[in-house]
Design a protein around this nucleic acid. Structure first.
Lengths: 342, 342
DNA sequence: TACTTTCGTGTAATCGATTACATAAAAGTT
DNA sequence: AACTTTTATGTAATCGATTACACGAAAGTA
C-alpha cells in the first residue's frame, strides 16, 4: 500500500538506468528531450516523490534551519519565528524549533542536537551571556554552519547578528517622558549581563544627562519580566523619600504591574505618573489605558535574520562574513504617557 | 578544519571495520568489552557525531515531526506548539513548523513538503474544512504517516484528534451569563464550516433553550476574529429594536472590540451589559476591565497531541487507531461579566 | 582427539539520490 | 572513407550508518 517509489522503480519500468532518471528529473541538458518527457510522465503517473533524506545525505545539505529561542509562546519570539519562516519558505527551507527555557544547559544541548541533525544554519536568541561553555558555539562554527544571533547576541568572532538599537530605544523613550514634563524618571531593568538590557539602561541614563537631569542609582531597579515583579518594584520606588513621577520599564509586563499598583493607590496616570514599556506586546495597545511601548519589529527582525542566513549559506567556505544589522526601534506613544492630547 | 568524523575514520584509526565501530557505539552485546571501550574512547577523543541523515535514510525515520498551523504568532497556536515541543523533545524528536495563513493551497503544499521531508508524523490544525482537495491528506495516510488534528479537525477515517468540548464551552459560558441575570444574550460566531465555531454556537443555543429563553436568529452575528470586526458587529446589534444585554463572543478579539464600542457609548459593563469571550488570550486578564473567557488549555492540547502521536508512531503498521481526545473547557470568570462580587 | 558451540569481527548489501568517468552511437568534417 | 566531435546513456562510486550473513578462533563436550 505505502509503496515508496524511487528512481530505480521508474528506471526499471522504462528499461533505463536510475542515473538517466535522475538526470531527466533534474533537467540535465544532456538528456534527450523525448526521454525526459517520458521519465517525467512516468514519474508523475507513479506518484514519485524525491526522497529528501537521500538527497540531504548526498549533498550534505538538509534544507532545514534550526531556530533556538527561550520560549515560543511569547509574542515577540513567535513573531520573529513567523518572519523567519515566511522568508525562508520560498527558498525551500524548513524551520526547526527549539526552546531553551533560559537554561544554558538546554541551549548547549539544542545546539548539539541541531548540528547532529545536519541543519544548514542556526538562528538564535542567546539565553545567558555568562554561559561560559562556549564549546557548543565553537562546535557550530567549526562545522562551518552559519550562525546568526537575533535580539540577544553574544560577541563571538565570525557570528552575524540582527538586533535593534536598544540604546536608542531607551533614549527616545526617556526623552519622550522628559518632554511630557516628567522630572524624576525611574527605570526597570533586566539582567544586565544581557546587552539588550544594558543598552536600554544606558540609553535611559544618557537621555537624562543630555537633558540636564540627574541620574539616581536608586531609581533603577532590576526586575524580572512579569506583572508581579513590576508591582513589587514600583512599591519599592514609591517608598523612597522622593519617589519618581515616571517609569521607563524594559518589560511591558513589569510596566503593567506597575500601572496596576499605581491605580490601586489612586495615582493618576498619566497626570501624576507616566509609564512606558518595551516590546510593544499586543496587550499594551488593547488596554483601556493603553501603554506606551517600544516596538522591536519582530517580524522584520525574523525576516532580516533569514536574509542574513541566506547571504551566508553559500559563501560559508570562503571568507567568514560577520554582518551586524541593527534595526531602529519605534516608540508607540499611548495614553500611559500622553499628557498632551489623546 | 570542519572535518566530519565518520565511523570509517574511527575504524581506520583502530584498524578495525566500520561495522565493529557501529556495533560498539550501539551497545551491541556481541562486541568484546575491551573493543567497545576502546571505540567509545576513541570516538569521544575524535569528537565523533553520528550523522542523523545517514541514520534517517537507513532507518526510514527522520525523527522530525511536522506541525502545521494557520499562523504561529497567536498565543493559542504558539502555546500548543510549545506543548508539542516539550512533550516530544525527551523522545528525540524535532519539531518542524509550517504556516498556512488560512490558505488551503498552502495547507496542501505544506502537507506534501512534510511528507517529502520524510517526517515521522504530522500534527495540525485544519485551515478550511471545505477544502475539497483531500488528496494531500490521503497522501499522508497512504504513506502510513501518523496524522493528528488538534482544535480544528476534519472527519477523515483513521485520523486521531485532540479538541476541546466547544459545545460545553459555549454552554457553560451562556449559562453563566444567564446566571448573572442577562436576559437577551447575543453571540458572535465564526466560520460555521469549522466545527469549533458551530459547536460553540450550538452550546450557546442549547443553554438558552434549556433555561427557558428564546433563541433569536438576529442575535447571532458571524464575525472575523478581530477588534474591528467586533466593533462593527456590536454596532449592528445595538441598532436592533430590542438590543441584547449580553454577548458571548467566539473570539476574544471581537469581544474586546465590542467592549471598546460599548464604553464609547457609555454603556456600563457589566451592570448594563455583560461580555464573555473565547480562548483566554493573555490580554483578557490584563485589562483593567478584565474579560471573562473560555480557556482551551493549549499547552495541554499540544502535549496530548504529542502523546497521541507517540502512541501511534510505532503501531502504524498494525491496525489503524483512531483516537478522539476531547479536553474540557474552563471558564475564567472576570469583571466583564461579574455582577455579583469581584 | 574430533566435533560442536559460542564469540567477535569482517564482508558486503542496503537506504535513495547524484555525478565523475566511460562508452557506444550519431553527427559532423575533411 | 576515415577521423573527430557531439550526444545520450550506462557504470559504478559516494554520502554515513546499519545489519544479515559468513567465517576464523576460542571454548566446551564427548
Amino acid at each position: 500500500m505505502s509503496e515508496k517509489i524511487t528512481i530505480y522503480d521508474i528506471a526499471e519500468k522504462l528499461n533505463i538506468t536510475a542515473a538517466t532518471v535522475s538526470r531527466a528529473l533534474n533537467n540535465n541538458p544532456k538528456i534527450k528531450e523525448s526521454t525526459r518527457e517520458l521519465v517525467l510522465k512516468t514519474a508523475a503517473s507513479m506518484n514519485y516523490k524525491q526522497n529528501k533524506l537521500a538527497l540531504a545525505l548526498k549533498s550534505g545539505r538538509s534544507n532545514n534551519i534550526g531556530v533556538i529561542v527561550p520560549r515560543i509562546d511569547s509574542n515577540f519570539f513567535a513573531s520573529v519565528i513567523r518572519g523567519i519562516e515566511e522568508e525562508l519558505h520560498p527558498h525551500g527551507y524548513q524551520v526547526i524549533i527549539c526552546q531553551t527555557h533560559e537554561d544554558p544547559k538546554r541551549e548547549n544541548e539544542n545546539l548539539y542536537t541541531l548540528i547532529d541533525a545536519q541543519v544548514d544554519g542556526i538562528i538564535m536568541s542567546v539565553t545567558d551571556v555568562t554561559n561560559e561553555n562556549d564549546g557548543a558555539f565553537h562546535n557550530v562554527l567549526q562545522k562551518n554552519v552559519p550562525l546568526i544571533f537575533f535580539d540577544r547576541s553574544k560577541h563571538i568572532e565570525g557570528v552575524s547578528s540582527v538586533t535593534i538599537n536598544d540604546f536608542k530605544g531607551g533614549y527616545i523613550t526617556t526623552k519622550h517622558l522628559i518632554d511630557e514634563g516628567c522630572r524624576s524618571i525611574a527605570h526597570f531593568s533586566g539582567d544586565q549581563s544581557l546587552e539588550i538590557f544594558k543598552n536600554r539602561f544606558l540609553g535611559y541614563k544618557q537621555a537624562l544627562l543630555d537633558n540636564g537631569m540627574t541620574f539616581k542609582e536608586e531609581y533603577v531597579i532590576r526586575t524580572k519580566s512579569s506583572v508581579d515583579a513590576g508591582k513589587e518594584a514600583i512599591d519599592t520606588l514609591l517608598k523612597l523619600e522622593t519617589p519618581p513621577d515616571a517609569l521607563f520599564s524594559s518589560s511591558d509586563f513589569a510596566a503593567l504591574g506597575a500601572i496596576q499598583e499605581l491605580k490601586e493607590r489612586n495615582i493618576s496616570i498619566p497626570n501624576e505618573f507616566c509609564v512606558a514599556g518595551f516590546s510593544n506586546e499586543p496587550f499594551t495597545k488593547f488596554m483601556e489605558l493603553s501603554i506606551t511601548s517600544v516596538d522591536q519589529s519582530p517580524l522584520e527582525m525574523g525576516k532580516m535574520s533569514a536574509r542574513v542566513f541566506l547571504e551566508q549559506v553559500d559563501k560559508t567556505n570562503t571568507i567568514k562574513i560577520e554582518k551586524k544589522v541593527v534595526l531602529a526601534p519605534e516608540l508607540h506613544i499611548r495614553k500611559s504617557s500622553s499628557r498632551t492630547n489623546f
